[in-house]
């Protein structure tokens, strides 16, 4: 598809040698000058909307030079918020990864009634406003919430403390890994796993040596995506955090505090870290897409052989007995 397309446009570009070809291809393409107008408008739109804000962050961070930029991170509150954000992500990402793997395994490898409903329910958190996502936990565990009095009696703090922030973060990033893996695993089918099992691999071996190598890029992307969102979430975290400086401020909340105090250099410096995280996510996505495309092409030629060899490799131990 992609090749055909590039040939096509190459043909319109320098198809002078073959007049007939040019005429034929030109018929389904706009004149070159019109193409350039459309390209210019689209590029201008994307530039204004995407690149300008990004450049602004770095320009704002470096406004007073590199020294001021690095000095921003010496602020103890900013340092704390970086550490706190890392802890929140370190707890919530593995939990959602485990869930995503389990959900994708159940949904992609088995048929059961209510599968469609389950898939829709998993996507539910994406439809909920971040603010409402925070609010639901305030209504559960806050002072006036369902478990509020009981928690107060036992001196357990969830809202305006780390557990509440972790809960809100898990809720917000809940569907991400599952959403990446379900279509990927459905596409791969279950023949390879069935073959591995038939050849004597245990369930765990099948997962570890057959399924996981097939989905590793999807897992990586899902984790990076979850991590970026977990570290960057603002609305939900803002509602449950209470903005207690040096105690419950994540990096995005610290950015807000600094910005509202007109401390622009420090605010943009802290924001630049989150920008790097976002850009890293985009790079990983591009790499993963390339890998998936690459791994898909040879597989298409010999699906049976690759499945069999994977199964053989996986069950080499027990089958050789």
């Amino acid at each position: 598809m992609r090749e055909a397309k590039s040939q096509n446009s190459a043909g319109t570009g320098k198809g002078g040698l073959k007049g007939g070809l040019k005429a034929k291809l030109g018929a389904t393409n706009e004149p070159r000058w019109f193409q350039w107008i459309l390209i210019a408008v689209a590029v201008a739109y994307l530039f204004l909307l995407l690149f300008v804000p990004l450049i602004t962050v770095f320009a704002g961070a470096l406004e007073q030079g590199l020294a001021a930029y690095f000095h921003s991170f010496a602020d103890p509150d900013t340092l704390f918020s970086i550490k706190f954000t890392l802890i929140i992500a370190a707890v919530s990402v593995p939990l959602n990864l485990t869930f995503g793997l389990a959900a994708a395994w159940a949904i992609a490898k088995f048929e059961f009634p209510g599968k469609q409903i389950l898939t829709t329910l998993i996507d539910l958190p994406f439809a909920v406003s971040p603010v409402v996502s925070g609010l639901v936990f305030v209504l559960m565990f806050g002072k006036q919430g369902w478990f509020g009095p009981w928690l107060a009696d036992h001196d357990i703090k969830i809202i305006f403390a780390a557990p509440g922030i972790i809960l809100a973060t898990i809720f917000i990033t809940f569907p991400m890994v599952a959403r990446e893996l379900i279509p990927l695993m459905e596409e791969q089918g279950k023949e390879e796993e069935e073959a591995a099992r038939t050849l004597g691999a245990s369930g765990w071996q099948t997962f570890w040596h057959v399924t996981l190598p097939n989905i590793k890029w999807g897992v990586l992307y899902g984790v990076i995506l979850t991590n970026a969102r977990a570290m960057g979430e603002f609305g939900a975290v803002s509602v449950v955090s209470g903005h207690i400086r040096g105690l419950t401020t994540t990096l995005p909340l610290q950015v807000e505090i600094l910005y509202n105090e007109y401390n622009y250099v420090q605010a943009f410096s802290a924001a630049s870290l989150l920008c790097f995280l976002g850009l890293l996510t985009l790079v990983v996505k591009a790499v993963v897409q390339r890998q998936v495309r690459k791994s898909r092409q040879p597989e298409k030629q010999t699906p049976v052989a690759s499945a069999a060899s994977a199964a053989l490799a996986a069950s080499a131990g027990p089958a050789a007995r």
Binding site: L54, A228, F268, L277, G278, L282
Partner: peptide, 14 residues
């Protein structure tokens, strides 16, 4: 995909 990847608070201030 930048608006997906960029934290909303960062987008907001910039």
């Amino acid at each position: 995909d930048l608006p997906f990847a960029l934290p909303t608070a960062v987008a907001g201030i910039s």
